[in-house]
Write a protein that binds this DNA or RNA. Structure first.
Lengths: 140, 140
DNA sequence: CTAAATTATCATGACAAGATGATATTTACA
DNA sequence: TGTAAATATCATCTTGTCATGATAATTTAG
């Protein structure tokens, strides 16, 4: 469903939301905590910063933190820089133009399903996920 | 949502379902009708045949046709050889073990959404899509 | 002002998906 | 029996994603 990179982004944001949201966290700290390749994560963090999801500070004692409260950050915002509009993935059959007025054979049935996926990403806040009993992201 | 190859497979099956289901259709005929690369489609057709979705006949006057009625063929069957269990894509955060008893932070919320996607592919029949007003697959 | 720490950026490589082209194999029909 | 038509199979090529490693730029601390 999500690309590897988008998954890294989401896990990173959850990590930052669960930790001290106001303090800075180094890329190497995050990479080690989440078991994500260090150098690759650097680029992902940079893109998240450019997208306005994180703010970065360079130099000694630098690092990353959330640009806004987790309760106001949607999953769609986190994932969009990597996977584009998630779930909104238009036509199941790959037609460039597929709409209510010019539908592909799968349009009517697929529309409601993909709409739910899209809604999930647009309306679920990062903060919502922290309410779960186990917020820690455990890896294999 | 679907890989390019799975999309080819789905469009091919819809084409065969809309056409004479009992007669054979050549790979080149399908490729031209659906604007899919000829040689690449050959392999996709072969895999669909091996998966039991199509039957193939070699030699002169050979070709492909559906192995069973479109009304008894699920979208999941068509797509599975390429994308695996679609929508059933387990954990949004990529955890290998993620279940009701050992959930990731997103589990509860994501479960219902991914379940709907999975259900769509498992319960929608190829034949269902033919009832649409415009069954022809128009490409850009 | 210098050095260390840290992000930013660049260059490259590994790998899979998608695509292309050529060859082998099978079958029908003249 | 031979030839043409069609699928089956094999060998590459291209491209994008994921990943690795090295270097530049920036900032703080002493």
């Amino acid at each position: 469903m999500l690309s590897q990179t988008a998954e890294y982004a989401l896990r990173t944001v959850l990590y930052l939301a669960a930790a001290q949201q106001t303090s800075l966290h180094r890329a190497s700290e995050i990479a080690e905590a989440l078991d994500i390749p260090r150098n690759y994560l650097s680029k992902t963090l940079h893109l998240l910063a450019r997208a306005g999801v994180l703010t970065s500070s360079r130099g000694k004692n630098g690092g990353f933190r959330l640009a806004k409260p987790a309760s106001k950050l949607t999953l769609a915002e986190v994932v969009a820089p990597f996977d584009g509009p998630t779930g909104a993935r238009i036509c199941l059959l790959g037609r460039v133009a597929c709409s209510d007025s010019d539908p592909c054979p799968a349009h009517a049935r697929w529309k409601s399903v993909s709409g739910e996926v899209s809604t999930f990403f647009r309306e679920t806040m990062v903060g919502d996920l922290l309410e779960s009993p186990v917020a820690r992201v455990k890896r294999a």
